[in-house]
């Protein structure tokens, strides 16, 4: 089993992440450079790919398009708490929120970072926590590196599947890079100026 950071501890990960099989995609270029990102709202998979993807037994985190298309068939898995869902950086948290009366019926929701410089996942997490009332495990997957952990935590993540080459023993420290951040965020709804009496004498 792979290792996972949950809160600040290292645990064995009992979940597996189901992805669409990798396929040859034609290299797209913009201004002479390869395009690294999908645009927000772009399709993730074809209807066939969605219909043909088998969901294995055991605790499984499935892609959002699969959940949106096949939620009826997966209802029992959801009730048995063996189903999670993951959302990609170009996908819509609104669609996820609209697909279920209460997102907390998911034991885990994961947000994928296709590349660590893709910052959309931070907004997705913030929305799931602050707007759509999700209180369960919110997990960062994909290109998750040590130096993102503090920001991820602040946006509401509480579990992190670090890329395998990262020094997992360093994670707890990285989650505490700063002790008194200025802004309100998902992990701390009050900005510093409402949390602390500020001033030169403090």
């Amino acid at each position: 089993m792979a290792k996972l950071i949950r809160h600040e501890g290292i645990v064995e990960d009992e979940w597996s992440v189901l992805r669409f099989p990798a396929k040859e995609e034609p290299l797209r270029k913009q201004a002479g450079k390869p395009v690294l990102f999908k645009l927000t709202g772009e399709a993730s998979a074809t209807p066939d790919e969605i219909a043909n993807l088998a969901v294995p037994e055991g605790k499984t985190i499935i892609p959002l398009p699969l959940w949106l298309a096949r939620s009826d068939e997966l209802a029992a898995r959801l009730a048995a708490a063996t189903l999670g869902v993951w959302i990609d950086s170009h996908e819509s948290p609104e669609a996820l929120a609209g697909s279920l009366d209460d997102l907390n019926r998911f034991a885990v929701i994961a947000v994928n970072f296709p590349r660590f410089i893709d910052g959309r996942g931070y907004s997705i997490a913030a929305l799931l926590r602050t707007r759509y009332g999700y209180r369960g495990e919110l997990r960062a997957i994909g290109e998750v590196l040590l130096d993102q952990l503090f920001y991820l935590k602040r946006c509401g993540f509480d579990a992190y599947a670090l890329r395998t080459d990262q020094n997992i023993d360093d994670a707890a420290r990285r989650l505490r890079d700063f002790s008194h951040p200025y802004q309100a965020a998902a992990d701390q709804p009050l900005p510093l100026f409402r949390r602390q009496a500020r001033g030169l004498t403090a």
Binding site: G119, S123, Y151, R154, P181, Y182, Q183
Partner: peptide, 11 residues
């Protein structure tokens, strides 16, 4: 102060 290490807007 608000923009310093704003967690959502660093990338």
């Amino acid at each position: 102060q608000w923009s310093t290490f704003h967690p959502e807007f660093a990338y």
